[in-house]
């Protein structure tokens, strides 16, 4: 893409957001909305500035991202081998598919009560929630990815002399990769929502906690600022890391699944 169309894309992305900011400020002023109901733009910006200066934003964000990283990496490390193992056998994958589909949609927030019972409040419970959100979706997608590799490809590799290990590393994993990446993207989306919810209940540091704490002091400007940060962080993660990764694997191989 040439530079000018990048600029155009950015502009198209920003324009509605700018409009929203304008409307927001206009409504607050026109109706004289109390800061205890909803803050104005300036105080949100100030709250943001303060949280950066006193280091609380960094602390909360750091805690949240660390939990996401640990939960996600653990989940990926376990779910990919598991998904491949289940996907190579049609009988096993057919049998387990409903189970994983069920847990994929259940993933996330629903695990919070049981997680706090098992792990107590704090890092363990929240990481468990994230782990679950990623684990089931990635396992399911890996299974699906491996199972959907056309049989002739596996036959071709076998009749070229591929060992089981070669089959795994050269055929099954690359063949399932587009699905795996899609799974990670979906799972992280679940995980991010689950994280914020879990942090409101089960910890004393993190972005979700920052929001919930501010509520106790009627600091609507901190709440809104936190929401903005949560949204922006996800957008950055998704747009700059996950979406390009997904596009790269799927498009380069011409493996866009025709639905």
């Amino acid at each position: 893409m040439p530079r000018s169309s990048h600029l155009w894309a950015a502009l198209k992305f920003i324009a509605p957001l700018a409009l929203l900011l304008l409307l927001w400020e206009l409504l607050i002023r026109t109706f004289g909305v109390s800061p205890r109901v909803f803050p104005d733009v300036e105080s949100v910006a100030r709250a943001g500035f303060e949280s950066i200066q006193d280091g609380s934003l960094l602390r909360h964000t750091g805690a949240s991202l660390w939990r996401v990283a640990v939960g996600t990496v653990l989940a990926i490390l376990i779910s990919i081998p598991l998904g491949v193992a289940m996907g190579v056998s049609p009988a096993v994958s057919n049998f387990l598919t409903p189970l994983f589909r069920f847990f994929s949609v259940l993933a996330g927030i629903a695990w919070i009560p049981i997680a706090t019972l098992w792990f107590g409040y704090g890092f363990g419970a929240i990481t468990f929630v994230i782990f679950n959100a990623v684990f089931f979706v990635v396992t399911y997608n890996t299974l699906l990815g491996v199972a959907s590799i056309p049989l002739p490809l596996r036959h071709a590799a076998a009749s070229l002399g591929a060992s089981k290990w070669t089959m795994l590393t050269e055929v099954l994993l690359p063949g399932a990769l587009p699905n795996i990446v899609t799974g990670i993207r979906t799972g992280l989306g679940f995980a991010w929502r689950g994280l914020i919810a879990a942090e409101m209940i089960a910890t004393n540091v993190g972005l979700g906690y920052m929001l919930f704490l501010a509520r106790d002091f009627y600091r609507t400007e901190v709440i809104v600022f936190g929401m903005v940060v949560i949204g922006i962080l996800w957008l950055l993660l998704d747009r700059l890391l996950l979406a390009p990764l997904e596009r790269a694997t799927i498009e380069r191989w011409g493996m866009v699944r025709k639905a």
Partner: peptide, 15 residues
């Protein structure tokens, strides 16, 4: 590997 196969669907590795 002593029996090479050519498939109707080509079966080339897209990656």
């Amino acid at each position: 590997p002593e029996r090479g196969v050519v498939f109707q669907s080509f079966a080339l590795f897209p990656w």
